[in-house]
Design a binder for these strands. Structure first.
Length: 547
RNA sequence: GGCCCUGUGGUCAAGCGGUUAAGACGGAGCCCUCUCAAGGCUCAAUCCCGGGUUCGAUUCCCGGCAGGGUCACCA
């Protein structure tokens, strides 16, 4: 068979570059020794999720802790999946979490020398290599229809054989020259398949950067490398792109592990040295007693928008992910509470080998801790950012008064005190903590644990003696002074020694006042709250709260 | 089902043949305290099972079992 002629008939393009040319066009990168070149290669579905962020963070850290390059490539080989604006959305979302690319699709950079970074725009490159494989007899056209393939698969499943296009099932593998040209003449659509040289009898070990040594069986499937629309499949594009973009470390989800044999064979037939691979485990979730992979259809928490809407502090999400990525990160954080996570020595081989259950409690704790380290101004800026996008009209109006909010936040965050408070976990919840400082959102629940007389006496008495000029101890002295008037103990020690003798104690007096002022039995320092509210509003609230 | 990956407290996990089996989150309790939050202290809780190898296995080997992934002209 004249393979050269066949290759030209199948790939009639007249403007293809010789495959060897690409080695010159995309020369090895000049990066320091040991530097990793990594990439994030999403398909442009527009849905960027936690798994992408997780992977992107690993890529970004692997590249930047070694002085390497992290780039963005768009895997748009599947026309059906394309969504408008998806690429910008990926970049924007990752940027929100502090992850930036050095080069790639839609990235302004002088480094963009290995593009184009959209696979559809790389069709010529792929086709040049497919043609070469055809000429070498390492690939062949296949005219099987989807129906035929389905039929074969059904039969294989029924007889419990391995499904796929291989061995005796590879019908088109041995088509004669006449048959091929006849099919071509008849205008039948075709795909190009790899003529696999492997056998499942041969097993080798392969070193994965995360999983360590794994057993791989040679590929014997005649996988499709070029689809009938002339665009390559993921497998083929991966081999070509990661070779010519000079990727050193391919970090991807472990769902790719099973197609590793295909990728190894592809690199082999193309004459490329494979990159190193790191297969990460998936983020899992507990569902009805068993673990399962986080799913974008079922789990809203997989979407990054979920975290933005809930108002998680972006850096906290990143830090949480870092603890999942490298468990010794947490220990490092404890030693370097104010350290930049970028100073941590990320190691790809420290990544966990088993799928981690996504731990919302831990994320919450991380977010709370991160927010507690902010200055009042930083916290205000963060909350305002959330309010601008997701807040109510009342929230937006409240956020006009910057000075007032700074006072409130200084109190809520415990700034100036011995220890920071950790009341704000997320913006969505933190903004609600502000409600009682504004009359329009003050929504008290006057459920007192004491009788009418006691409550009203406390309220009236305190309203009459309250003076905003009082410092904390003067304020508290007044609270204590009221206690005996309603039969409460004014000293805790006194009460504890003889609880039967009193109806209550100072803390109960404070509770009544607190409910009146804030609408809730729990709050930060009441004296300061009243001070922030001012005398008129404080007194008004005390009197309004009578029953 | 075939193939591959994984298996230490409720969760994330250190651990690389001999340890009282770290730490963090969560839980319980105590202290502090005008409540809450924070903080401090304390406690409970783990090596999937069965065989080997070995003086000794959580660590090594084999076999089960369990969980996960994957079997497309999707990535």
């Amino acid at each position: 068979m004249d393979l050269k002629k066949l290759a030209s008939a199948l790939i009639p393009d007249t403007d293809l570059l010789a495959p060897e040319k690409y080695e010159e066009i995309f020369p090895p990168r000049t990066v320091p020794n040991g530097a990793e070149v990594t990439r994030l290669a999403p398909s442009p579905t527009g849905f960027i999720h936690l798994g992408n962020l997780y992977s992107a963070l690993a890529d970004e850290r692997a590249a930047h802790t070694t002085g390497g390059v992290f780039y963005l490539r768009i895997e748009d080989t599947d026309e059906k999946r394309k969504v408008e604006g998806a690429v910008e959305s990926v970049i924007r979302s990752l940027k929100y979490f502090g992850i930036k690319f050095d080069e790639g699709a839609e990235i302004e950079s002088p480094l963009n020398k290995y593009g184009p970074y959209y696979q559809r725009q790389r069709a010529k490159i792929y086709r040049s290599f497919v043609k070469k494989l055809l000429e070498q007899g390492l690939a062949y056209p296949c005219f099987c229809t989807a129906e035929e393939l389905d039929e074969v698969r059904a039969k294989q499943t029924e007889s419990k054989e391995t499904t796929g296009y291989y061995g005796k099932y590879a019908k088109c593998r041995n088509l004669t020259e006449e048959e091929i040209y006849a099919n071509l003449k008849a205008g039948k659509p075709f795909v190009i398949r790899l003529k696999s040289q492997g056998s499942i009898e041969n097993k080798t070990t392969f070193r994965d950067a995360i999983k360590g040594d794994i057993t791989v069986t040679e590929n014997d499937q005649d996988v499709v490398i070029l689809k009938s629309d002339g665009i390559p499949t993921y497998h083929f594009a991966h081999a070509i792109d990661d070779h010519f973009m000079r990727t050193t470390l391919v970090i991807r989800g472990e769902e790719w592990l099973s197609s590793l044999p295909v990728h190894i064979e592809l690199h082999k037939v193309l004459g490329f040295k494979p990159p190193r691979y790191a297969h990460t485990c998936s983020l899992m979730k507990m569902d009805g007693g068993t673990k399962r992979k986080l799913s974008k259809r079922k789990d809203p928490e997989l979407s990054l928008d979920y975290y933005r809407k809930a108002g998680y502090y972006p850096q906290a999400v990143v830090k949480y992910l870092m603890t999942v990525l490298n468990s010794n990160f947490e220990e490092w954080t404890l030693k370097n509470p104010d350290g930049d996570y970028k100073d941590f020595k990320f190691k790809i081989d420290k990544m966990g080998k088993s799928g981690a259950l996504f731990d919302l409690d831990k994320l919450n704790d991380t977010s709370k801790t991160e927010i507690s380290k902010l200055s009042a101004e930083e916290c205000l800026a963060f909350l305002k950012g959330w309010v601008d996008e997701f807040g109510t009209d009342a929230d937006k109006a409240h956020f006009e008064d910057k000075d007032y909010l700074i006072k409130i936040l200084t109190l809520i965050m415990g700034i100036g005190g011995k220890k920071r408070r950790k009341d704000i976990e997320r913006a969505e919840q933190g903004v609600r903590l502000l409600d009682y400082f504004f009359d329009d959102t003050f929504n008290p629940d006057y459920s007192y644990r004491f009788d009418k007389h006691t409550v009203n006496t406390v309220l009236e008495k305190f309203a009459s003696v309250y003076d905003p000029a009082d410092d904390n101890s003067a304020w508290f002295a007044k609270v204590k002074a009221i206690a005996p008037e309603v039969g409460f103990a004014s000293e805790m020690s006194e009460y504890k020694a003889n609880p039967e003798a009193f109806k209550g104690n100072v803390s109960d007096v404070a509770e009544i006042l607190r409910i009146a002022i804030t609408g809730s039995p729990n709050s930060p320092d009441l004296c300061t709250i009243m001070n922030i509210l001012g005398k008129d509003r404080s007194v008004a609230r005390l009197l309004k709260a009578k029953i």
